[in-house]
Simulated assay, not measured.
Amino acid sequence: MRETSVAVVVVRDRAGWYFINRRTPWRARYPGRFGIGAGGKVNDTETAEAAAERELREETGLDVRPRPVLAFFYVDGAVRHTVHLFDIVIDRVPIPNCAAEWSASCWVPPRVVDRLHRAGLLSPDTAALWDRYQDVQPAQCLS
């Protein structure tokens, strides 16, 4: 089992709402589950920071330098990767749905993310990310 690295950017607006997405049903991993922000694999020739910026730009059209938050190792069956977590806080703007990645996307308050989590509808790696993000960003997440 090969270990990979992924970079994920949590996208939050100034009112504390989160940009979430629903994975397309044909995705190999976690089809139909919800994710937060944008993210993907860190290529062999790039840093986690560069991957975060690239994924954010490719998936949302946002050209913003994200802030590093934390990194953690995630294991779930055949999935083994280091998650490099970043975030950005922006004015809420319409973000077009990235049809190659998601079947839907929208802005939601944190309580909706919590409900999706409790219902088991977040992708498992997103659930782990959300738990850790809440631990390091409690005041900002409640704003």
Score class of each variant (00 low, 15 high):
residue 127 A to G: 10
residue 47 T to E: 02
residue 143 S to F: 07
residue 140 Q to P: 01
residue 106 C to N: 02
residue 45 T to E: 14
residue 20 I to D: 10
residue 126 T to P: 11
residue 69 V to Y: 04
residue 27 R to Y: 03
residue 31 P to F: 04
residue 131 D to V: 04
residue 18 Y to C: 02
residue 75 V to Q: 14
residue 116 L to Y: 09
residue 66 P to R: 07
residue 100 A to S: 11
residue 117 H to S: 14
residue 40 G to W: 08
residue 91 D to S: 09
residue 132 R to F: 02
residue 139 A to V: 11
residue 102 W to N: 15
residue 7 A to M: 03
residue 81 H to T: 04
residue 72 F to N: 03
residue 65 R to D: 08
residue 68 P to W: 14
residue 79 V to E: 03
residue 130 W to C: 01
residue 48 A to Q: 05
residue 132 R to T: 13
residue 16 G to W: 10
residue 6 V to P: 01
residue 109 P to L: 08
residue 50 A to N: 12
residue 53 E to Q: 15
residue 7 A to N: 04
residue 33 R to N: 11
residue 94 P to V: 00
residue 118 R to V: 03
residue 141 C to G: 08
residue 60 T to K: 11
residue 102 W to H: 07
residue 69 V to C: 08
residue 100 A to T: 13
residue 98 C to S: 13
residue 136 V to F: 05
residue 107 W to D: 01
residue 50 A to Y: 06
residue 135 D to P: 01
residue 67 R to L: 13
residue 57 R to F: 10
residue 35 G to R: 06
residue 26 W to D: 15
residue 25 P to M: 00
residue 124 P to K: 13
residue 35 G to W: 02
residue 44 D to G: 13
residue 141 C to Q: 13
residue 106 C to D: 12
residue 11 V to C: 03
residue 22 R to T: 08
residue 16 G to T: 02
residue 122 L to C: 03
residue 138 P to K: 08
residue 71 A to P: 00
residue 43 N to G: 14
residue 22 R to M: 12
residue 81 H to A: 00
residue 42 V to T: 05
residue 43 N to T: 13
residue 50 A to P: 05
residue 141 C to E: 14
residue 6 V to H: 09
residue 20 I to F: 00
residue 81 H to E: 09
residue 112 V to C: 12
residue 136 V to L: 08
residue 113 V to H: 09
residue 96 P to I: 01
residue 11 V to H: 07
residue 106 C to R: 15
residue 59 E to Q: 11
residue 59 E to A: 02
residue 78 A to P: 13
residue 130 W to Q: 09
residue 136 V to Q: 15
residue 71 A to H: 01
residue 118 R to Q: 14
residue 134 Q to D: 00
residue 44 D to E: 14
residue 95 I to F: 01
residue 71 A to I: 02
residue 54 R to N: 12
residue 71 A to D: 09
residue 131 D to L: 06
residue 74 Y to W: 12
residue 79 V to T: 11
residue 11 V to W: 13
residue 69 V to W: 04
residue 41 K to V: 02
residue 92 R to D: 00
residue 14 R to K: 08
residue 31 P to E: 07
residue 86 F to L: 06
residue 114 D to F: 04
residue 27 R to C: 11
residue 20 I to N: 07
residue 50 A to W: 06
residue 111 R to H: 15
residue 115 R to H: 11
residue 86 F to I: 03
residue 59 E to N: 02
residue 79 V to R: 04
residue 15 A to T: 09
residue 109 P to C: 02
residue 32 G to N: 10
residue 87 D to S: 01
residue 141 C to T: 12
residue 122 L to G: 00
residue 17 W to R: 15
residue 7 A to R: 12
residue 48 A to W: 01
residue 111 R to A: 15
residue 22 R to H: 03
residue 15 A to Y: 08
residue 130 W to L: 01
residue 60 T to W: 14
residue 119 A to T: 09
residue 133 Y to C: 05
residue 27 R to G: 04
residue 133 Y to E: 01
residue 3 E to R: 12
residue 142 L to F: 07
residue 104 A to M: 05
residue 57 R to A: 13
